[in-house]
């Protein structure tokens, strides 16, 4: 079954590290404007799915389509570049460039990679920092910002690329509970504005409120994929039930 309106279409992907099969036949479809949350126990392959979507990790078998890009057939970093303009990523450890200020972190790639006009990019970057409510920290270095602030700069940096999709890889996992709120607030705003988002998360409340559908991964498979109301109230798979029983 193909979904012509689907922005991301993943079919039967497999990936192993040595003898360990991380992904055992994943199927996932994300439509434009959707927010999809991937939850599941650690080691079940959640982050690997995201890394395969933007080609950071090659897959062994299966197909991945993002927009017009057939990700599985892109072999070189050069071939990946158009894909990476379309798909931005926010990491668990923020991964900001420590030698650049917050503003420079946001401006770098649009100027250096996309070749956009500097003045226009600076204007865009300042607006994005305002949007994540860090306009006053534009000249601070990552080392001078708290974890939550760094993560919001990382979100602004991803947005500056004007992507069609943003992948969020456990972006609140390294944060303390108070700053988690601020980061989730920013992400919720993006979802409400209609940006396509795929999130690996442990924030069940957030997944329930924000996402259009929720996937549960276990042993490299998506064992449940349902709208949040159904997913949390009436999970079909016993493994989902067990997991939710432990975390809720």
């Amino acid at each position: 079954m193909t979904h012509p309106e689907a922005l991301i279409e993943i079919k039967d992907i497999h990936k192993s590290f040595g003898k360990f099969n991380v992904l055992n036949g994943i199927d996932l479809t994300v439509r434009k404007g959707e927010a999809v949350c991937i939850i599941g126990p650690s080691g079940s392959g959640k982050s690997t799915i995201l890394r395969c979507m933007n080609g950071l990790m090659p897959i062994d078998r299966g197909t991945i389509r993002v927009g017009q890009h057939q990700v599985h057939s892109l072999k070189t970093e050069k071939a990946m570049r158009p894909l990476r303009h379309q798909v931005a990523m926010v990491f668990q450890q923020y991964n900001l460039f420590p030698h650049k200020t917050a503003l420079e972190n946001v401006m770098m790639a649009p100027i250096q990679v996309l070749g956009h006009d500097r003045a226009e990019v600076e204007d865009r970057a300042r607006k994005l920092l305002d949007k994540v409510r860090l306009g006053h920290k534009a000249d601070s270095y990552p080392g001078q910002l708290s974890g939550g602030q760094q993560q919001r700069v990382a979100i602004a940096r991803a947005l500056a690329m004007q992507p069609d999709v943003i992948l969020f890889d456990e972006v609140t996992a390294a944060l303390d509970p108070e700053t988690v709120k601020d980061v989730l607030f920013n992400i919720r705003e993006l979802v409400e504005e209609g940006l396509t988002c795929v999130l690996v998360t442990h924030e069940m409340g957030f997944a329930r409120e924000v996402s259009h559908h929720v996937c549960f991964t276990d042993h490299g498979k998506i064992v449940e994929d349902a709208p949040p109301a159904e997913f949390f109230a009436n999970p079909r798979d016993p493994r989902t039930r067990e997991f939710l029983g432990q975390v809720l």
């Binding site: 970093e77 570049r81 900001l96 460039f97 420590p98 030698h99 770098m108 790639a109």
Partner: peptide, 28 residues
């Protein structure tokens, strides 16, 4: 590794990544 991944995810080519990101940090 995180710095390298961030550069890759932002679409930097290998050379641009080296000159713009890795070399300045490594020098320091």
């Amino acid at each position: 590794r995180a710095i390298i991944e961030a550069g890759q995810a932002l679409g930097y080519s290998r050379w641009a990544r080296f000159w713009r990101i890795e070399a300045p940090i490594a020098t320091r």
